[in-house]
Amino acid sequence: MIPTCFLLITIASGALEAFKSGNDLYLAGNYQGAIAAYESAVAESSQTAEIFYNMGNAYYKLGDKPRAILYYEKSLSLSPRSMDARSNLKRAKDELTLTDEEKLLVSESFRGTPVVNRFTLDESSIIFFWAYIPFTLFLFLTVSFQGKWRQRLTAGSVLLLFITLILGFLLLMRYLDSRNKYGILLVQRIELREGPENTAPPAATSFGGLKARLSESLDAHGETWHKVELPNGQTGWVKDSSLGII
């Protein structure tokens, strides 16, 4: 345990230095340099919502909105209630040069289950854990007591069971959602292919900044290809370089 903590602290200090250096460069207007510094912080095995958020800002400043969206999404996956990240994500999405139909597609793409998507899987699990503890306690007391108290405790247990079941269902939803992998299309205009190769016929046309669900990944012809599903249900293959995985 102690060596693990030590390792984490050691990693943390290196990442913190890189993070601060990235911030200095960002504030000085050197956004490329800031991105490089943030990437080195990520390479220090320290992936935090703040680093991804700042990377999103740096890409935004460079005008690379799809990558900005990717990093805001990454930040939100670690800190879903970050208002700044949500605000900047919305801003970046709004500033994509798209048709009204495409904008609608972007704004509604894979938003996850409402309420549940405001919590990380860890947070959801902890909430659920603390909810079932009183329920279990009530249940034990119900078994142990007799008479009038038993009736009261049974009523309490039923109520808590109801709450626990709802939370359990939401947790399960969150878990199932977390099993899905998503990515952001990074190329301004992109053709999805029917197969994992450049010569495969086009399956659909899409655009940078759109969130897509990954269903399959494989290495073909020396390149990594991902099969994605677009919010409108269309599927196709894209190259790894054209997709940023959240």
Partner: peptide, 29 residues
């Protein structure tokens, strides 16, 4: 302008919950 960058960073002192831990937690109640 967009919301400013974050100048502070909270280093997570633990790794995210593993899938096994999560499943134990899910089924333990």
């Amino acid at each position: 302008d967009i919301q400013p960058i974050s100048l502070k960073m909270d280093i997570p002192l633990r790794h995210p919950m593993s899938r096994n831990t999560f499943l134990i937690l899910l089924f333990s109640p």
